[in-house]
């Protein structure tokens, strides 16, 4: 089985978000970048599947050279090889088109993404990519089994879960319970140095959106404190003052 896992390089979850250049650019100074947490789960499940059933796991990232540490980490975790499509990831549409233009001649049986990247939270690459490749996609999966070319999955839906199946090839996006993230071991880290990381030039694709500025949410006003012995007053305040219950 030939699996492709799409990984994005995102700021660590503890990052305090700030902007520069008159609020038009994310301030990366001092920011630690990591593999997007959902993508790590996708990678872990891909490795579990190939360990059981044989096959290869390729990771792909659309990004500049600053993504390389995250890509090397994916190799250290166990990916067979890696592709970096050398372009600034402008938006989900652009990223999906770049990956599609690479993947269309590669005949992957399965392509996994994260449910969303924790920086831009678009959650669109899975659906866009599938459509561009003309294959089905399933969002937000919590389990994935493959047997005889058929994928059986559990996915989150509004207010519940759905068990469904689809014939490979398929694109699916990973949710929390899909797998346990893996930590690279020493052997993995050593072998990652010699695994292939191929840089592919970006396809000439026009962008169809542009982020023109950022803003931080207004700071909250002061918190109204209620003495614990008068805790019941809270309900009255929420009803009459905040009017939310």
């Amino acid at each position: 089985m030939k699996i492709l896992v799409c990984i994005s390089n995102v700021p660590d979850t503890t990052t305090k978000i700030t902007f520069t250049d008159n609020n038009t650019k994310f301030n990366t100074a001092g920011v630690q970048f990591i593999i997007n947490p959902y993508d790590e789960l996708a990678l872990a499940r891909a490795l579990e599947l190939t360990e059981k059933q044989g096959g290869t796991v390729t990771v792909v990232n659309v990004g500049l050279a600053d993504s390389d540490p995250s890509i090397r980490k994916a190799l250290a975790i166990g990916a067979t090889d890696a592709i970096r499509i050398n372009a600034e990831p402008i938006d989900a549409y652009f990223v999906a088109e770049q990956i599609a233009s690479y993947a269309k001649n590669e005949n992957f049986d399965l392509i996994l993404t994260g449910r969303e990247s924790i920086d831009y939270n678009s959650g669109q690459v899975c659906g866009l990519l599938a459509e561009m490749l003309g294959i089905p996609s399933v969002n937000a999966i919590n389990s994935l089994e493959i047997e005889n070319g058929i994928a059986t999955m559990m996915r989150d839906i509004d207010g519940g879960r759905e068990k469904l199946s689809a014939k490979l090839p398929l694109v699916a996006s990973a949710l929390q319970e899909l797998a346990e993230a893996r930590i690279p071991n020493m052997r993995g880290i050593m072998s990652a140095r010699t695994k292939p990381l191929t840089i592919v030039e970006a396809a000439g694709i026009e962008k169809n959106s542009a982020t023109i500025g950022f803003e931080l949410p207004a700071a909250k006003g002061s918190c109204k404190m209620i003495a614990p012995e008068n805790a019941e007053q809270l309900i009255e305040l929420l009803h009459n003052e905040a009017k939310v219950i």
Partner: peptide
């Protein structure tokens, strides 16, 4: 932008070559 909305929006966008913004 519900689960259903999230799964349908990018597909529709790709079919219509439309720019898409979520959230």
């Amino acid at each position: 932008n519900t689960y259903s909305g999230k799964s349908i929006a990018p597909k529709v966008a790709a079919k219509l070559k439309a720019g898409i913004v979520s959230g």
